[in-house]
Design a protein around this nucleic acid. Structure first.
Length: 104
DNA sequence: AGTCGAGCGCGCA
DNA sequence: TGCGCGCTCGACT
């Protein structure tokens, strides 16, 4: 189980309509390699089971996707999932933030 | 508030 | 072996 595999595993747990941030993922992995998370997504070998488009930046920005134009696709997908997005920013993403360790 | 620089983990050259 | 990335944070201006 490598760092990337863990990333995919966590992200694959994000239900439709919910989103998460790279920071949350890194935190769930107990690491500070935030960039590694995004880097792992970039090379996401399982784009089907890993909804990397549901992972955004911590500041509410959708961030990047595959390429500059890919970001637009990401936004469209999120909107279809019920996420409100203005320009390249997610509205109320904190309200739909999916926490991996939300074990109350 | 906006900008600059450093840090992590994996993959590629 | 060295650098970059779908990022984040702390400090300075």
């Amino acid at each position: 189980m490598t760092f990337n595999e863990k990333c995919y595993d966590l992200i694959s747990q994000i239900p439709a309509g919910s989103i998460s941030t790279y920071k949350e993922v890194a935190k769930a992995l107990n690491t500070k390699a935030y960039r590694a998370v995004g880097s792992a997504m970039a090379k996401n070998p399982n784009p089907i089971i890993v909804p990397c488009h549901r992972v955004i930046k911590s500041n509410g920005d959708v961030g990047l996707f595959s390429y500059k134009e890919g970001t637009k696709t990401k936004i469209t997908l999120l909107q279809k999932e019920g996420i409100d997005i203005a320009g390249e920013k997610v509205i109320g993403f904190k309200n739909k933030l999916f926490r991996f360790s939300s074990r109350i």
